[in-house]
Amino acid sequence: MLELRLLQGSLLKKVLESIKDLVTEANFDCSATGFSLQAMDSSHVALVALLLRSEGFEHFRCDRNISMGMKLVNMAMMLKCAGNDDIITIKADDGGDTVTFMFESPNQDKIADFEMKLMNIDSEHLGIPEAEYQAIVRMPSSEFARICKDLSTIGDTVIISVTKEGVKFSTKGDIGTANIVCRQNATVDKPEDAIIIEMKEPVSLTFALRYMNSFTKATPLANIVTISLSSELPVVVEYKIAEMGYIRFYLAPKIEE
């Protein structure tokens, strides 16, 4: 038996909106730790890892570890039927082939349940080792989204370079080139407006902007985005989910032929 009650149902709505175009179907895993997912896009270039910790739920009952295969567009469609202020409860029976999403309005005057068929998904789970990154950039998530959107009007790829000068986002296309440099800016009035760059060594990597733009759909989840770069690893674009966990996007770089 599984029963997870999330007071801030809008979080789950936002999570689905941020991943449904990147990943078609995925297994949601539930254990004492929480509600999690790891999935790759169809071309295996990007990977998303989601964790919503059990402590973040108002009620969390998961009698045994369970993996539920869902088609994400269908799940997103059902969650769109929940109001932004609704409490969402996810329910499933052990060994069942359906999951139920229950939506309660804040004053309890409307209760809806939507039952969705589960599917069997053969997905490989990858081990993601803890790594030391050469550079970590923390910046307002809206600023990062703006940069990715602006650059994709010029080119298809972005070169992200971190030096002691700051972080530079560059692109090149048929009509010309673009460079956006953000300098460390820790002394702002609001901490969420700060750009903080931790650099151990300079690093420069090239990525497909199409994926970066897809990751920025998670912007409504967090004011701050953390971008971790290392020359030997996929970039990690992380959005923390208030008090609950995170959504991390991993993107394999483009490499010189």
């Binding site: 789970h125 990858l126 790829t157 394999a252």
Partner: peptide
């Protein structure tokens, strides 16, 4: 010219 690498080039199956 740049080639797109894949996640499995970096992370292996659990």
């Amino acid at each position: 010219h740049c080639l797109q690498s894949r996640i499995s080039d970096y992370f292996s199956r659990d």
